[in-house]
Design a binder for these strands. Structure first.
Lengths: 230, 230
DNA sequence: GTCTATACAACGATAGAC
DNA sequence: GTCTATCGTTGTATAGAC
């Protein structure tokens, strides 16, 4: 699938995200009017991701956030009860969005080789669209509470499991040669994560996400395919 | 080379590190006696890396550092003039140590295939020994001054260049098949960095650094070698 | 629902005794 | 060379007017 096509698919469901936070976290969000709450939650999340991308969540002050979001300090506290809770809110929401998109797209596809292509593309395309969240999620893990850190670890292992399952299926099918699925899946994840962790490098070199996806797939296939490189 | 052998080679030159900081940065370090300064600089660096590993440099307070290093707040300021300068000090020192070790070991070796093995092993072994510094360096990049961020980018590109040169040499030699050296080098770096970024995962799975080095080399060779997998 | 004004704790940094 | 005591600032969070 082409990136442009994927993008329109995702952006259609993107508006629902903030309505979902509002519905799920009404305990924290003290605002009653859904319209107002949804609009401001989006402003707050965007501003938080933007500032944290520059200098990190911990270095972002609530005065920074107030300025960037256009809401006063007092108003901010109508949407979360502490700075740490804001961190949790963003993490939870991001994971929900990403896992859902990943799981939905892969289970439909039959055949290990085709699943692998789909999974790699979906992960890269998603991280291209939500790249600030992916970066944020990676870099702020150690600032989380123990409970939330556990969720982050589970999330890492969940994504890895998707690839382990595909690799094992392919070995049973005979299209992938025998190798340690866990080490290979870990390597695949490392290659996928480099796309958003080193975004400055790929942007500078004018590599598109489609070109990178193509390269990563060739790189992986050279190692796992039973036949040689095409 | 085996990791244990590498370790003894490096640890012999490891004691000189802090004497070198003391010599190079006497403008910041106000202490006159070399013996005292070297001993305390080591305590300060170790404590900073340990605390930052847990909760990040920005979240580490100087009271934390005082407690962990065993020096008072006042004494700390005899070794650096601000918290930001401490960050620079550690970054500079780490880069110096790593670049020197990397360059020294690779230029001696003839032949692209052998250079590649040596470079991968050296990078992984170094990051195993100085893993807290590697992790620190990666995660704290965006907390640096613009000037220091530039140095971090140059450092990333320097390491990558080592691999680009090896790949191009191998293509001229005819032992590596034609491919984009920059994309391949970026992928190699991603695999090397995963070792210290996801240390918890590999520790949990009881993967040793030698096993990981072996795996990474096989993974890379499958893509770049002219002949198939051995 | 949003604002301004403010409380209060914790921070980096320094002065001066020893 | 290191300590304790303290300064001024900045951070998160809240109270109460509108």
């Amino acid at each position: 699938m082409r990136f442009e096509e994927f993008k329109t698919l995702v952006s259609n469901s993107s508006a629902e995200i903030f309505e979902e936070i509002f519905a799920h976290r009404s305990a924290s969000v003290k605002i009653k009017k859904a319209g107002v709450a949804v609009r401001n939650l989006e402003k707050i999340f965007d501003a938080t991701l933007a500032i944290s991308h520059q200098k990190g969540f911990h270095a972002m002050t609530l005065r920074d956030l107030s300025r960037a979001s256009g809401l006063s300090m007092g108003a901010l506290y109508s949407y979360f009860s502490s700075k740490d809770e804001l961190l949790d809110l963003i993490q939870d929401q991001g994971r929900l969005t990403v896992h859902r998109a990943l799981a939905e797209r892969i289970e439909k596809i039959p055949g290990a080789a085709e699943k692998l292509t789909e999974a790699v593309q979906t992960h890269l395309y998603l991280s291209e669209i939500y790249y600030r969240w992916f970066y944020f999620s990676y870099m702020e893990t150690k600032n989380l509470s123990k409970e939330q850190q556990q969720k982050a670890i589970e999330s890492e292992l969940f994504t890895e499991k998707v690839f382990i399952d595909i690799l094992e299926l392919g070995q049973r099918e005979g299209v992938f040669r025998p190798s340690d699925p866990r080490l290979t899946a870990a390597a695949i994840k490392a290659l996928l994560q480099d796309w958003y962790l080193k975004r400055w490098k790929y942007t500078r070199r004018k590599i598109t996400v489609e070109q990178y996806a193509e390269f990563v797939l060739e790189f992986i296939r050279a190692y796992i395919d039973t036949k040689g490189v095409a």
